[in-house]
Design a protein around this nucleic acid. Structure first.
Lengths: 207, 207
DNA sequence: TCGGAGTCTCTAACATAGTTCGATAACTCT
DNA sequence: AGAGTTATCGAACTATGTTAGAGACTCCGA
């Protein structure tokens, strides 16, 4: 056997360099825009020339893909750490605040993960599977609240991305959007409550 | 004086060529993607070489800008021709169906007008004013329904763009989204009715 | 210790972008 | 017909992603 530790050392260094490149890519993308990321600039930032990057990534899109996977993993981690109370309306609000917060705190990541408007880039099957996992986590949480109608997921996704878009492009600060989310979630919750129970949505303000 | 008709003839020809270039640009963008539009391809399509386009537009972004203005004008026209009944819920549904329909019938136009994800492009002040005009038209119509809360516009915009994004990226056909729009607008209408009148949203199904 | 194998990095170059320059052709008007 | 304006084009410049091939370095077995 002897799967030598030296081989591991090399793999470690390689992985460290990959991580360093990705970190530099995020910084450049946040500074200049995701689509404006150039391999020559990126290489300069990590002390290389452009072709050397091809020792670590097959192409520029492979870099985007690695960033996409990183972003998806960040979402899964953060999502898993989201503690809920068991009270549906509160949890609904918390989940939406989490989603919009996650998106707006890094617009570049949001563009990469959810807008998908980088000219020639489509995530690979592996990376896409990660984001599907995230969507399933959302679906599962909704199911835990009793929301199994697929239209609920559709509508909430629409509201989430729509609010995120507006918040990013209009004005990032202020609690204007926070109150709007609360409002929308109350509206939504009342709606589905009426659909199911008949009139359960009117009494409990749930706080 | 003699502001000669010949001079007009030239201006006409020039304007016709500009329109022809823009038409070809739309076709290419619809076929290959908005960001994949290249001046050399565009020039070939209209029987020119790339530098000749600079006699008609200052830059590639100027072409995008002209397309943006065209799209905004199309929106204003269609919006003005939207006949409403005076019944708030029906009109709300019709307006949202109109908006989402306008967006999904030409995803390239939607991307240009509302997503604004072309790498180096920002609409000029004049073109942007046109789109603001469109937003004001929506605002005015909402006010006509008694919806003056600015949050109403925010939320409806979010729902509109969010639903459009989903419909475009998931599956264009089917009435799944149409029913979702109806559902969302009923929900929204009941919500604002409750806010204002107290309990007017429960009795009238409004159809 | 030496040399081969593998890995990393570089220079040079290619194709394709948008764009500019300068010359040529076409057209308009006197 | 000649002057002035406009349109068009070939050549070239910069910047992009990408590839090929040549050195340099590390590791490992002989």
């Amino acid at each position: 056997m002897l799967e030598t530790p030296i081989r591991d050392r090399r793999a470690e260094r390689r992985e460290a360099t990959r991580a360093e490149i990705l970190e530099a890519a995020w910084e450049l993308a946040r500074a200049e825009g995701l689509a404006a990321l150039s391999l020559r600039d990126l290489a300069r930032k990590v002390g290389m020339k452009a072709p050397s990057l091809y020792s670590y990534f097959d192409s520029k899109n492979a870099i985007y893909d690695a960033m996409y996977a990183q972003g998806s993993r960040q979402y899964l981690e953060r999502d898993a750490g989201l503690g809920l109370t068991g009270e549906p309306l509160n949890d609904l609000k918390a989940a939406m605040h989490f989603f919009v917060g996650f998106c707006t705190e890094d617009p570049v990541r949001y563009q990469l993960l959810f807008q998908r408007t980088i000219p020639g880039f489509e995530p690979s099957a592996e990376s896409f599977a990660l984001s599907v996992e995230g969507l399933e986590a959302v679906q599962k949480r909704l199911a835990g609240m009793g929301l199994t109608d697929p239209r609920a997921l559709d509508l909430l996704t629409a509201v989430g991305t729509g609010l995120t878009d507006q918040q990013i492009s209009n004005d990032p600060g202020g609690d204007r959007w926070a109150r709007l989310i609360d409002d929308a979630m109350e509206m939504f919750y009342n709606h589905v409550s009426n659909r199911k129970g008949g009139g359960a949505g009117n009494d409990g303000h749930a706080r």
